[in-house]
Amino acid sequence: MTNHEEALIRRIHREVADQYDEELELELEDREFVLCPDGQASLAEDGPDERAHRQRYFHELFRLQGELVKLQSWVVSSGHKMVVLFEGRDAAGKGGVIKRISQRLNPRVCRVAALPAPNDRERTQWYFQRYVSHLPAAGEIVLFDRSWYNRAGVERVMGFCSDDQYEEFFRSVPEFERMLVRSGIQVLKYWFSISDDEQHLRFLSRIHDPLKQWKLSPMDLESRRRWEDYTRAKEIMLERTHIAEAPWWVVQAVDKKSARLNCIHHLLQQVPYAEVDQEAVVLPQRERRADYVRMPVPQDMIVPEIY
């Protein structure tokens, strides 16, 4: 092997390591912050048990993400259509698992739908209408970070819908989901379950972490006060919308890492995917033309190299 080939292999290894650094950055986001006497937040120190736990977590996460890539290839090849709904209380970990599912996948195949509150026009539409445009075509997966179940949760608790609208939702949603399934869309519904104490801890973490404070809205804070109202709404929702064609699956989410692994593993078990043979990729030789001269980039267009 020549020196040039050895250098190239080292560069490739560094490139792979850089890609996995992204996962470590996401891990930093999950680390527990402690408040120092001077009022500044700092990271809690890890013991050997915690480090070993994190190593096992990463090992299994990367394995499951490899399976998700295989699932993606099968979805594209077979024309399968999937909708995955993620519901749960504020700070339950829905966004974290969605990040880990979509992280290694093609965003043209696996899309995330996180709809804002409906505008004035959307409030006058058929309730499900604004969600329909986000449903998958053949060979697509759509992950809903909250979904049409907003009506059974936040809208009910906060008084954003009438009693008649609430009851009409429960009459309509089973038929709506059965219609999706009959049309060839697989519907998976996950509820992320956390305890009262765990939500309290996560809210405090967001309050004291300047990188997470944006996640706390006035609605989130109000949801904390109305914990029991949300509990009743959730129990009614699960009871009235747990149907054979699209059942609910409850993820125990007090431990974020375990919840992610359990959810991804379960999702993979729900799809009859198989590994798709891929053609060998051959990198073509770059063409070089004698009459081409590269033009210099003006210095005032170059971003300063501060780092």
Rank of each mutant, 00 (worst) to 15 (best):
residue 158 M to Q: 06
residue 80 H to E: 11
residue 14 R to N: 13
residue 157 V to T: 06
residue 144 F to T: 07
residue 231 T to H: 15
residue 307 Y to P: 09
residue 248 W to F: 05
residue 4 H to S: 09
residue 138 A to V: 00
residue 166 Y to G: 03
residue 141 I to E: 03
residue 182 R to F: 05
residue 286 R to A: 11
residue 132 V to N: 03
residue 91 A to S: 15
residue 203 F to E: 12
residue 238 L to N: 03
residue 76 V to D: 06
residue 272 P to T: 02
residue 63 R to V: 02
residue 143 L to S: 09
residue 224 R to H: 14
residue 125 Q to L: 09
residue 44 A to T: 02
residue 208 H to I: 09
residue 296 P to M: 08
residue 190 Y to G: 07
residue 220 D to A: 04
residue 212 K to L: 08
residue 29 E to M: 14
residue 238 L to I: 12
residue 299 Q to E: 14
residue 181 V to T: 15
residue 138 A to K: 09
residue 51 R to H: 01
residue 290 A to D: 12
residue 119 N to Q: 00
residue 147 S to F: 05
residue 10 R to K: 14
residue 123 R to C: 05
residue 24 L to H: 04
residue 169 F to I: 02
residue 231 T to S: 14
residue 243 I to C: 10
residue 129 Q to T: 06
residue 160 F to P: 01
residue 176 F to Y: 11
residue 87 E to Q: 15
residue 100 R to N: 14
residue 40 Q to F: 14
residue 181 V to D: 12
residue 139 G to R: 09
residue 259 A to T: 08
residue 130 R to D: 01
residue 254 V to A: 10
residue 293 V to L: 12
residue 305 E to W: 12
residue 40 Q to L: 12
residue 11 R to T: 10
residue 218 P to T: 13
residue 57 Y to N: 00
residue 233 A to Y: 05
residue 222 E to W: 08
residue 197 D to A: 13
residue 263 C to V: 05
residue 239 E to L: 10
residue 191 W to H: 05
residue 187 V to Q: 00
residue 173 V to L: 10
residue 15 E to W: 11
residue 290 A to H: 08
residue 188 L to E: 13
residue 162 S to N: 00
residue 254 V to D: 05
residue 283 L to Q: 07
residue 297 V to Y: 04
residue 204 L to G: 08
residue 176 F to Q: 06
residue 92 A to W: 00
residue 187 V to H: 00
residue 245 E to W: 11
residue 156 R to F: 08
residue 248 W to A: 05
residue 216 L to V: 15
residue 242 H to C: 12
residue 195 S to F: 09
residue 137 A to D: 11
residue 151 R to K: 04
residue 120 D to H: 13
residue 139 G to I: 06
residue 220 D to M: 02
residue 25 E to Q: 15
residue 66 G to W: 01
residue 129 Q to M: 07
residue 164 D to A: 13
residue 160 F to H: 02
residue 28 L to G: 11
residue 61 L to A: 06
residue 56 R to E: 03
residue 49 D to Y: 04
residue 206 R to I: 05
residue 84 V to S: 06
residue 104 R to K: 14
residue 258 S to T: 02
residue 73 S to N: 12
residue 204 L to S: 11
residue 99 K to F: 11
